[in-house]
Design a protein around this nucleic acid. Structure first.
Lengths: 153, 153
DNA sequence: GCCCTTGTTGCGAGCTACTTGCAGGTGCGT
DNA sequence: ACGCACCTGCAAGTAGCTCGCAACAAGGGC
């Protein structure tokens, strides 16, 4: 639990209340968050934390492998505490629900790139977009009245 | 070769010089490009094409499945003419070289999501980051003098 | 070939997500 | 307790993209 603090200290970085809090927020959330969301959560405790501090700290945590950065769909970048084991995301384009699946499903990709093409893979980013079971059900019910193609939320 | 023009007309969109040119640029490039790069190339022929036209046209081509949108690393979004068959990218974080691999390597992922989790996958975006064979060779040679941790370019 | 309608374009302002430079503040080694 | 190097808040700046609007032009009808 104090893993991050130890790592920071070991690397000669200072333990500030902001860094502590940002780390705790990420740990407690246990899910991917945008920098904006992290900021909002952090400010419930320390209202004056600046967004540049959030970005700088997230970048620092990423560089220490304590946090990973993911581009799900959309413009913003998502962060979450480095998961063990590695996993990937699938996102429902209708309700935004996010699920996970394990890296072992990418074994053929690792095999092809690593072994056959001599490419040293450091990271694979995967995002599957589609429609989740629940939204498929809703779409089925709503099929009588065809939905407009814009998002309804 | 006039595939895009036919598709546009069929869907009731107008064939403008800008749209023609943007499509030709994409086809001739035969690689992924940022909107910025497309704009630069387009302006060699039509200097006054506005960036909003580039974005609108790229969005249109994406919506017609003539072009696909990909988030490689970095902030900008990349576009390329829809490849048949579907493929994914791996990017060398040192030299920026981009390679492709086929969607069939993701069969286990399709299986897991589609069959076992009832998630209707519409699109999977995969980007593998790592170091290509050539840069590994360079890194090996340079290993005598350890590199600083900041980017040197 | 010309006209008219309506889709398209260029322009400029605006927006989101993020970065940077700097002056003042603070963790922590001593 | 002290001091200084690292860190923070602030505000201005940037990249990449979007939007509203008025002028323009594609292409169907004649």
């Amino acid at each position: 639990m104090h893993h991050a603090r130890a790592t920071l200290r070991e690397q000669g970085y200072r333990l500030t209340p902001q860094r502590n809090l940002i780390w705790e927020v990420m740990r407690d959330a246990g899910r991917h968050m945008t920098a904006e969301e992290v900021a909002a959560e952090v400010r419930r405790t320390l209202p004056d934390v600046n967004v540049s501090t959030i970005y700088r700290t997230l970048d620092l945590l990423v560089s220490l492998d304590l946090v990973v950065e993911t581009h799900l769909e959309g413009s913003a970048c998502y962060y979450e505490v480095s998961p063990e084991p590695t996993h990937h995301h699938f996102v429902c384009t209708q309700c935004g629900a996010v699920g996970h699946f394990g890296d072992e499903l990418l074994a053929p990709v690792h095999e092809e790139l690593g072994v056959r093409r001599a490419f040293a893979v450091s990271q694979i980013q995967v995002t599957a977009l589609g429609v989740c079971r629940d939204c498929q059900a809703v779409a089925g019910v709503a099929a009588d009245a065809p939905a407009p193609d814009g998002p309804s939320a």
